[in-house]
Nucleic acid binder design. Structure first.
Length: 923
RNA sequence: GCGAGGGUAACAAAGCCAGGUUAAAUGUGCAGGACUUAAGAUCCUGUCCCGCAGGGGUUCGUGGGUUCAAAUCCCAUCCCUCGCACCA
């Protein structure tokens, strides 16, 4: 987008090059004077705003930039409202991504290499092969992109205090995390247990959604089967089911004629499962003494006992049984399973057991009805069977009641399911078998099964006492938008135990079990605390070689600590910083963080801190799309921040982010819309460049402009105080710009009004377009930094409502004249406007109140006319005659003809002028 | 399935929480005009329908309801988007 075109360079005061020079100039000066590195100042109120630290695995794009930009706008606004503002930033380096990128680069993975080549090109890297080679070391990737992000953020003019930065990989910080986990553990918030997860058999690694083929479009979840043991004479059959409550209706077992089965022994117990099931059981932590192959005919010989009911059942063959699914053995409940019913029917069976689950009589969802309705004939009608099964399971689950043929009569299916399962497992008659919700493989083709991790460490977010504390905290906090409060309550209720450590990845070792590395979301819940005193902690760390639990505890928990003398001062200083700054006043992030990071953030704060140290507010910014689509490499719509700043400017990007959408709604990066803002910025620059100081009295329209400006400024402040950034800046930037245009058309003098509002305007605009404001502040106002100015009070007497109303009135008259012209097609040569006669004006208050008795008899004849048109009259109490008289020139130039203004006199049996509604006559 | 958010004129997008001042901001697009040698840029006007006097009519996913009054509140229904855990 080139907006500095052609020969008319005077009109385009600044070109791209000059804009970026200006931005660079002020960025350098802010940095040199360290104006965004605030010090403790007990006499001032502090404001700590945080945005989640970026992960350092690549460059940032327009989407990432939004939240940080909004954060910076708020930080800058709070500064001009007098707060001592701290806006810190650090870098996240924990977890597996950086690690796996390094490994992929080491393995010469093509797509990774090309992606990172692209990133390096963006940053103008000279020695790309050399740099890529260094990326085989994870730390080098993290280091490189940390610096790149600092560079990006600097180019965007962010008022970040970089002096407090740290990373999650830094030893000093890891000592802090160790402290945190020891604290959690001492409160009993850490537990251990078995944990199922998706697992790649070939790679011998857990896998996430990203690793699974089509994992993003067709999600794989973990299902919990109840593997029920059916005792036989020599061994048990293990049939796995998602519906253990149906054991009361079992008629037989099914196995696959094509399956391969094994007899496995575990102590005295002997069980038969399919070969694939054997693999799963091993992954899920079962160990076996002996394993034998067993033939199908051997299995078919036996009779097996149904647990709980004690009924003896036979094994039958069925093609529909998938030996790879679950245990490869299925129990048959023809009264409540479409497939079992059909299979049994085909096999020539005619007697079917009674139903054990009742559903409302109105429902169509019984096996017989569904089979009939959908016309299912054989097991090969798989689509219809799947459909019927879905309907049946859903209805039985939601409205099914166990009947008198079971001991659980009257219980809902949902209740019965967990009761039966508990009973079976409790009595050793069943165990849990995990299975994937569909057959899955990794992108590299390895089979994905469910494995169980033994003794996984959890943070026990299910603790009710902890949840209660957290709910209280949420109640005390503010949320923008407000509906988030309820969502957070729900999210806290929904949290369960969270696995908090892994065997792989970068991060902090779990202090009580160093084989484990703390998982990357769990190590970043209360890290904003460290922004307050990172330099002090680092210095202590360097001095002492570690921080140690007691020292950290003394700072962040206010416990006593006998420090060595040489550390004493540093500890005191760290504590002072912590005490002054902490308590995050606003945390700003995006909605995907709600149910994880932010909920952990809230709960960990509730667990570890109290009082003023607790968070005060959370705001969520909406997602960013690009050209109408979700930002992604495959869409080809990734636009890097660096690229945006180069092609437009930081101020244009910032204005777009501020005004493009409300903070909580989605924003589309659309270059046409960006162009609109960039034009407006260009106009702003022209106005500022051509400004020269001017003094003098204000005429009517200039008064109007000043009043309008201050009423917009008022709105700006009240919006910004609630983070209504979009409204605020539409008002103070776009609308003021429009007012200026209007003023010019009305014959007002721009310089004379700018002179009066310059200070206010530049200060108010500076949070969004700080570079330009800084430039013109120095040019037109003073040598100090506008970034550090305070918004001054609105002058006495402003905004003047009656002036604003008067101008509204003039515009309404213009609208009326236009409408008449349109309706009649008259091109007037002369316009006569006659305002309300004094006599009518005097009695109007009585008419309006319905006090007709107070109206003098000689003018009572106006009452009927009033009754007829009263809905069209808007009360207006200005001096209409003088207003119109002083706007006469404007009216004349607008309509290109003579305009005559007069005071009307009351006329009987004809139309009269009313307050705010003069008579208009076109000739 | 569960939870949340949303469906507004050609398009994008406000308004809805606190019902009337809303035919409904704003931007884009489109049409006409001004300026200009011309183009671009800029500015003005118009952009649901009707109207020879400032007016009237019909609109805010669909269907009901509350109310003197509903885009705004309630109920039902259809559709769209997002989150649902080990992934940062």
């Amino acid at each position: 987008m080139d907006y500095s075109c052609c020969s008319c360079s005077l009109d385009h005061a600044l070109g791209d090059a000059m804009t970026s020079d200006i931005e660079k100039k002020w960025q350098d000066r802010w940095k040199k004077d360290r104006i965004f590195e605030p010090a403790v100042d007990e006499s001032r109120k502090k404001f700590l705003i945080t945005v989640p630290w970026p992960y350092t695995s690549g460059s940032l794009h327009v989407g990432h930039g939004r939240t940080y930009t909004l954060g910076d706008i708020i930080a800058r606004y709070k500064r001009l409202r007098g707060y001592n503002v701290l806006f810190p930033m650090g870098f996240h380096q924990s977890g597996t991504p950086v690690l796996s990128i390094a490994q992929k680069i080491l393995r010469n993975d093509k797509s990774t290499l090309s992606l990172y080549t692209e990133y390096l090109q963006q940053y103008g890297e000279k020695d790309i092969p050399g740099r890529l080679k260094s990326f085989t070391e994870p730390a080098a990737i993290a280091e490189y992109f940390s610096n790149a992000i600092i560079n990006d953020f600097t180019l965007l003019g962010f008022s970040i205090d970089w002096s407090r930065r740290f990373t999650s990989a830094e030893p000093m910080y890891q000592d802090f995390v160790s402290w945190q986990f020891k604290k959690l553990n001492s409160k009993g918030f850490l537990t251990r247990g078995d944990y199922p997860l998706l697992y790649s058999v070939d790679d011998q690694n857990p896998v996430g959604e990203d690793d699974i083929k089509d994992g993003d479009t067709d999600k794989v979840t973990i299902e919990e089967f109840t593997a029920v043991k059916f005792k036989g004479r020599d061994f048990s059959m293990v049939a796995a089911s998602l519906r253990p409550e149906t054991v009361y209706g079992i008629t037989n077992l099914w196995i696959s004629p094509n399956g391969k089965y094994y007899l496995v022994s575990q102590g005295k117990e002997k069980m038969v499962v399919s070969d694939k099931c054997l693999t799963k059981l091993k992954l899920q932590g079962k160990e076996f003494d002996q394993i034998f192959s067993i033939s199908i005919s051997e299995i078919m010989k036996g009779e097996f006992e149904v647990p709980i009911t004690g009924k003896k059942v036979k094994v039958r063959l069925a093609d529909f049984v998938d030996p790879d699914n679950a245990s490869g053995v299925v129990y048959s409940v023809p009264a409540h399973s479409i497939m079992d019913y059909i299979a049994l029917k085909i096999s020539g069976e005619n007697s079917f057991p009674e139903k054990i689950i009742e559903i409302p009589a109105s429902s169509e969802s019984t096996v017989e009805k569904l089979v009939f309705k959908l016309g299912i004939k054989s097991p090969s009608d798989s689509d219809k069977i799947a459909e019927a099964t879905q309907l049946l399971y859903k209805d039985e689950f939601y409205s099914g009641i166990m009947n008198g043929l079971t001991p659980l009569a009257g219980k809902t299916v949902q209740e019965a399911r967990s009761l039966v399962r508990e009973q079976l497992i409790g009595q050793g008659l069943a165990f849990i078998l995990y299975e994937t919700s569909r057959k899955a493989e990794t992108r590299s083709g390895s089979e994905v099964l469910v494995a169980v991790v033994r003794n996984q460490w959890f943070i026990d977010y299910s603790r009710q006492d902890w949840k209660d504390e957290s709910h209280l905290l949420i109640e005390s906090m503010s949320f923008y938008p407000e509906y988030l409060k309820r969502i957070f309550h729900d999210s806290i209720d929904w949290l369960r135990q969270r696995p908090c450590a892994r065997k792989r990845g970068l991060g902090t070792r779990l202090p009580m079990d160093p084989d484990w590395v703390i998982e990357s979301l769990s190590d970043s819940t209360i890290y904003p605390a460290v922004y307050t005193n990172a330099p002090q902690l680092r210095s202590i760390y360097e001095d002492k070689g570690s921080l140690g639990f007691d020292l950290v505890d003394s700072i962040f928990s206010d416990s006593s600590y006998k420090s060595e003398d040489r550390l004493y001062k540093k500890v005191i200083e760290a504590k002072k910083q912590w005490n002054y700054w902490y308590g995050v006043d606003l945390r700003l992030t995006t909605s995907p963080h709600i149910s994880n990071h932010l909920s952990f953030y809230i709960m960990n704060h509730a667990a570890l801190f109290s009082g003023s140290k607790l968070p005060r507010a959370i705001s969520i910014s909406g997602t960013v799309t690009s050209k109408g689509a979700k930002i992604g490499k495959s869409k080809g719509n990734v636009v890097s921040l660096l690229n945006v700043v180069q092609r437009y400017s930081a101020d244009i990007y910032r204005l777009f982010v501020a005004v493009g959408a409300d903070i909580s709604t989605d924003l589309d990066w659309n270059e046409d819309d960006v162009g609109v803002h960039s034009k407006k910025i260009d106009q702003f620059v022209q106005i500022m460049e051509s400004f020269s100081p001017a003094k003098g009295d204000l005429n009517y329209i200039e008064e109007w402009f000043i009043s309008s400006f201050f009423s917009r400024l008022k709105l700006f402040i009240s919006e910004m105080d609630q983070y209504g950034i979009r409204h605020a800046y539409i008002s103070i930037f776009h609308e003021v710009m429009n007012d200026l245009k209007y003023l010019e058309r009305r014959g007002g003098r721009i310089n004379i009004v700018l002179q009066r509002i310059m200070k206010h305007w530049l200060i108010a605009l500076s949070p969004v377009i700080p570079h330009l404001c800084e430039e013109y502040w120095h040019k037109h106002v003073s040598d100090g930094y506008v970034s550090l100015e305070l918004l001054s009070a609105i002058p006495e007497g402003y905004p003047n409502e009656s002036v604003l109303k008067a101008e509204e009135y003039v515009n309404r008259i213009i609208q009326d004249i236009r409408e008449i012209m349109k309706a009649t097609g008259i091109e007037p040569k002369k316009i006569q406007v006659s305002v309300v006669p004094d006599q009518i004006r005097d009695i109007f208050p009585f008419l309006a109140k319905g006090e007709m008795g107070k109206i003098p008899a000689d003018v009572k004849w106006v009452i009927p006319e009033f009754m007829k048109i009263r809905n069209l009259i808007s009360q207006f109490d200005g001096d209409e005659y003088s207003i119109l008289e002083s706007s006469k020139e404007y009216l004349e130039s607008t309509f290109g003809c003579k305009v005559y203004v007069s005071r009307g006199s009351p006329v009987r049996k004809s139309k009269n002028a009313w307050p705010g509604r003069p008579l208009i006559r076109l000739e």
